[in-house]
Amino acid sequence: MDTIKAFIRKSRAKSPWLLHFDCGSCNGCDIEVLACLTPVYDIERFGIINVGNPKHADLLLVTGTVNHRNKKVLANLAEQMPDPKIVVALGSCGLTGGIFREAYNVIGGVDKIIPVDVYVPGCPPKPEAIIDGVVTGLEKFAEKKGDKS
């Protein structure tokens, strides 16, 4: 039983499928995220796939500030991801609301709505930083308990 669990843990770390949600970013972070997929950085070598659907995803990558309009969307997406899952907040806005934090419609960082596992600072963070953040998240992901049933 333990070997199976260990095996599953290892597989988790090797195959995080990523859902990228732009929560109101200026697109700076998003471009850097996409850069990770290009041949130069090629995150697929870590088994990371950019999926478009929370039901298939393990890792929620959020860029941008959370506002009153999209906080529900963010919560919904996180809710529709099967456990175990990790949330990575990306960029200054995703961490705290960034330069928009004083705006009347802005709530703040991602962790105001859903628990965040890894924070990647930067405006925007470099692709290396993003990959580093995701890989840090993988260790947490591997140890998480899944399958509550």
């Binding site: 929370p54 039901k55 963010l74 997406l77 809710e79 529709q80 099967p82 049933s149």
Partner: peptide, 21 residues
């Protein structure tokens, strides 16, 4: 017994999972 979740509607579903905002 498993957790159920409504169909995927780009996260925009309302409290009724058959409609979106």
């Amino acid at each position: 017994k498993a957790r159920t979740s409504g169909p995927y509607l780009c996260g925009a579903q309302t409290t009724d999972p058959e409609s979106f905002e």
